[in-house]
Amino acid sequence: MFKIPIYLVTGYLGSGKTTFIRQILETYAGKEKIAIIQNEFAPANVDGQDLKRHINKDFELLEINNGSVFCVCLLSGFVKSLKAFVSEHKPGLILMEASGLSDPVSIGQIFGSSELQDDVFLIGVICIIDAVNFVKMHSKMPQISHQIMIADHILINKTDLPCNLKEIDTTINKINPLAKKHYTVQSNIPCDTILGITGSIDQKAQKKYFFLQGVSNRPDIQSIVLKTSKPMKFDNLQRFIRFISGSCYRLKGTIILDNGKTISIQLVAGDYRFEEIITSSKLTELIAIGEGISVQYLKSAYNEASQA
């Protein structure tokens, strides 16, 4: 039994998520067993029909509630349907297009729940932003920043249209200086640059987990989410990272510290980076990917580091 990796594709309304997914399907559908999950805040599955109409190849599609799913509490039925979906189709990879209004961390938390953790894991988060509207939208729409905060890859899309790339870069760097940025037109990007776990610091990961290299020998990998309002002692941060790097192959997200600051953190195969960021969030939100890990494990390590 291998676990199916899920890439979460986030991005605000109209940023180009469906176009991105279409690119992936154009390249891989028919060759690889790809499945798509859509949870778009749009009139009756316009996007889903759109995909089926445009892509002439074989892929499986799961649509969630086909309407205004705006709260995680409404995603509960999703657990059941996803379980049934993967056991029926056994895809090699799933791309989930999250609603532009949804909170990606909460979705990640569902993948790591006891009911789904034997079936799937969250391998990475790809966030697409609309270069044209980003500057004026992001300060008004906190969810945009939140989506950027936990992304591995950020596609700055529609760069062929008038936009201020410098300002976009500066803004993104304040929110998530560690994600890999790509500049795209029509969400067009060579798929293999993005469907690894992350970009430059992650060669080993690319080799180990890249989905195209066969799915039969996937290790017992899990993704879990830790959300907490406890600040971590800054002095304990490095110890915490060293501690969990034994079992967490990847860790990313934000940590609130006892000195009042918030940092963005990325850990890949023992290498880690963190930088201070600017956010209104009062929560530590971490997504960890590793072998044989549990929320309990991450929580006890975190709690230990929150104490003196």
């Binding site: 009139p43 009756a44 086909n66 309407g67 205004s68 799913v69």
Partner: peptide, 16 residues
């Protein structure tokens, strides 16, 4: 607004 009904969830708005 049109709703889509589900047996496992409250309904969802599908047209505006």
């Amino acid at each position: 607004c049109d709703l889509i009904w589900s047996d496992d969830n409250p309904p969802a708005v599908v047209s505006h």
